[in-house]
Nucleic acid binder design. Structure first.
Length: 300
RNA sequence: GGUGCGAUAGCUCAGUUGGUAGAGCAAUGGACUGAAAAUCCAUGUGUCGGGGGUUCAAAUCCCUCUCGCACCA
């Protein structure tokens, strides 16, 4: 009987050095990488999302990078499907596969699965969005309390993003979204090894600041200019672009925009750490440990 | 040199007729099952520029000094 296939998850905050390390790991195991990053998958967001370069991709094949139009709004469930399918291909030829990324929900979707849920009618969804834009939170609270008291009772009634989905779900499916949330972990036909990369906070923040300066030198502003006409897409509600759009609209100076990008990247890194640290399955390693590769080999 | 305005949380500022301070942003911590680089929640002791005075009580009134800004010379 063949040995169980193994998925190596490499996660951590932005700018910690995940990409380079994942490449080294994948190369040494002679396998491929699936990126678990909700923004690197879009074409045209090359510099701002720090997509692996062509040279890096020539060393190890990457998937879910630079392969969708920004108009296509993918979500965690789409990633789950994509990654499971791709893993089947990779495992057909390799003992190991590497998933590398910083989007916690996507990693969770892949490793534990999302509950199966019916799709929301896009027309109803749009109607709900429009009503919310016109009438605001008060309207949505009232509407939810009336139409989906079960959700309203759960106490997420201060978060518009989730309320919007709950309302649109209830209106198009007819049942409360709460009914579909079983939180049952799915069994996957492979072992999962979780590796978290970290650095002392000060050092991480310093790296983030430096990387933003480098991105600007590489032409982030020009990249943002090209995407500017599509700035209202949710995929472009992204650190590094939103701030430059504000600059392009004369809402702040370029220096202020760069400062904001650094600040928001630091905030984002902290949120990522909060998410991953809660998951006790991770083995944490210092991203700059000189014996990193040996330590990773130990974990496998 | 003169006059006026300002000096309050890391930053920008509120502070009503005197009752020992509060917002936004930042920062820190946290949540998060289909927008997740998103979205949201929690946390505010700071010689109220220094010194003196009036008062039971002063960020708030008076005097003075220091520093900024503006205007007049």
């Amino acid at each position: 009987m063949a040995e169980q296939k193994k998925l190596i998850v490499i996660a951590g905050p932005t700018a910690v050095g995940k990409t380079a390390i994942a490449i080294e790991v994948a190369k040494s195991l002679d396998t491929e990488i699936i990126s678990a990053d909700s923004r690197q998958c879009y074409r045209g967001m090359t510099i701002g999302t720090a997509q692996p370069s062509a040279e890096e991709r020539a060393i190890v094949p990457h998937h879910f990078v630079d392969c969708y139009d920004v108009q296509e709004a993918l979500n965690a469930a789409d990633f789950e499907r994509y990654a499971l399918e791709k893993l089947e291909d990779i495992f057909a030829q390799h003992q190991y596969a590497v998933v590398c990324g910083g989007t916690g929900l996507y990693l969770k979707a892949l490793c534990e699965g999302l509950d199966d849920m019916p799709a929301i009618d896009p027309i109803i969804n749009q109607v709900v969005l429009d009503h919310y834009a016109a009438k605001g939170m008060d309207w949505m609270c009232k509407e939810l309390r009336q139409k989906d008291p079960e959700f309203a009772a759960m106490g997420a009634m201060d978060n518009p993003a989730r309320m919007l989905r709950a309302l649109a779900f209830k209106l198009s499916v007819g049942t409360s979204i709460v009914q579909y949330r079983t939180a049952v972990k799915k069994d996957r036909p492979f072992d999962i090894i979780n590796i978290g990369l970290e650095l002392p906070r000060e050092q991480l923040y310093e790296r983030i600041n430096q990387r933003v300066d480098i991105m600007m030198q590489q032409g982030l502003l020009q990249e943002a200019q090209q995407l500017y006409p599509q700035r209202h897409l949710k995929n472009l509600q992204t650190v590094g672009y939103a701030e430059l759009f504000a600059y392009l609209e004369n809402k702040m100076t370029i220096a202020q925009a760069v400062e904001k990008i650094k600040q928001h990247s630091r905030n984002y890194a902290k949120r990522q750490l909060t998410w991953f640290k809660k998951d006790k399955a991770f083995t944490w390693l210092n991203a700059q440990d000189p014996h990193l590769m040996a330590k990773i080999a130990d974990v496998l």
